[in-house]
Simulated scan of single mutants.
Amino acid sequence: MSERIEHTAIIPIAQAGQRFDRALATIFPQYSRSRLQAWLKSGAITVDTTVLRAKDLVCGGEQVRLSVLLEEEGAVAAEPIALRIVYEDDSLLVIDKPPSLIVHPGAGHAGGTLQNALLHYDPRLAGLPRAGIVHRLDKGTSGLMVVARNLTAHKLLVEQLQARSVKRDYLALVSAVVTSGGRATAAIGRHRRDRTRMAVRQDGRAAVTHFRVVERFAAHTLLRCSLETGRTHQIRVHMAWLRQPVVGDPVYGGRTRLPKGASEELKTALSGFRRQALHALELRLVHPATEQAVGWHSPLPADYAYLLEVLRGCR
């Protein structure tokens, strides 16, 4: 389903002498500069019925008209996949993602993803980049994600993520007895040999993970991790680098660690947990429409809760 956007505005006299693209960013602040520039190049933005270039200077007082049809992106098909929706309004959706659900199509999984499900739930999302998905969770990671439902919300949510003002807290069960909380600040980049993995690299991108101890077990620790940045696999890479890998992590976790004298139930529970024990527990942000601070909490999925129950019984 396509959607047409129509706006008219007058360039303030105070902006006389400015470049047209800068004036556009002022009078249409709800859209990103890159999107406005793309619309300008396509002829969707006119001034007094003529088309200006981005570098042209304005005099002030011109009438600007924006008329654009948001076309569906790519060939991602809508699929009737059940979603657990924690919250929704005209600006955003908050989804509680199960660990089995992949966020968007990629190599080896053209369908069956959150993006496919979102397009079925709200066909208007086809006009947004990746159906409004502004951040992701790895397959195997459960918990909260926010999805934008219009371009204004998309721009503002992306800006909050870039400004590191979105608060995302995770529960991570790690294979180590951690004595105290701390902060991991190692930069992260693509692995030099295995391009499907990430790694700590001096020439990587800045990455900061805060963590504190929630509960200790005989050979494991439950941590609450807060992301200051949002690098791919960030918590998983940082915990493995600290030699306290996330339990069940198929990429960075290493072999299963069993406490001395572990019961058969615990051995079965740990060896049978075949995904990273990572759950997006809390999400906090500023609502893009109301500008009020809002937040949500997600309970642990059943498999994760059961693993913790078994660990508690074996201390």
Score class of each variant (00 low, 15 high):
142 S>C: 10
128 L>Q: 13
105 P>S: 10
125 L>K: 13
104 H>V: 07
134 V>Q: 04
142 S>G: 11
142 S>N: 07
132 G>C: 11
151 L>E: 15
116 N>Y: 04
150 N>G: 09
102 I>V: 15
109 H>D: 03
135 H>D: 03
106 G>L: 02
140 G>F: 08
130 R>V: 08
130 R>G: 10
116 N>D: 06
104 H>Q: 12
139 K>S: 11
102 I>M: 11
116 N>I: 02
112 G>N: 04
145 M>N: 00
107 A>S: 12
142 S>K: 04
143 G>A: 08
104 H>Y: 09
131 A>Q: 10
138 D>H: 11
112 G>P: 03
121 Y>A: 13
154 H>P: 02
147 V>C: 04
117 A>E: 03
110 A>V: 02
145 M>W: 00
101 L>I: 08
103 V>F: 00
111 G>E: 05
153 A>K: 03
137 L>C: 11
123 P>D: 14
141 T>G: 10
134 V>L: 06
120 H>P: 05
116 N>R: 04
150 N>F: 03
123 P>S: 14
149 R>S: 11
135 H>E: 04
115 Q>R: 04
140 G>R: 04
103 V>L: 01
144 L>K: 04
153 A>V: 05
108 G>W: 05
136 R>D: 01
107 A>G: 06
123 P>Y: 13
147 V>E: 00
126 A>G: 15
122 D>W: 11
101 L>K: 09
147 V>R: 00
121 Y>W: 15
121 Y>M: 02
101 L>S: 12
102 I>C: 05
133 I>Q: 01
108 G>K: 04
127 G>R: 09
104 H>G: 09
117 A>S: 08
102 I>E: 00
133 I>L: 09
150 N>M: 03
105 P>W: 05
139 K>E: 12
153 A>I: 04
101 L>N: 10
102 I>A: 15
119 L>T: 12
112 G>M: 03
119 L>Q: 12
101 L>R: 10
114 L>I: 06
151 L>I: 01
134 V>N: 04
132 G>M: 08
108 G>D: 06
143 G>K: 05
142 S>E: 07
102 I>Q: 00
139 K>Q: 15
127 G>L: 14
126 A>T: 13
122 D>N: 14
130 R>S: 15
148 A>V: 08
124 R>G: 13
105 P>Y: 09
118 L>E: 10
118 L>N: 07
113 T>P: 01
145 M>V: 01
135 H>V: 03
150 N>K: 02
112 G>L: 03
128 L>N: 14
132 G>H: 09
121 Y>K: 11
145 M>C: 05
132 G>D: 11
140 G>P: 07
131 A>R: 07
120 H>C: 13
103 V>C: 14
147 V>H: 00
136 R>N: 06
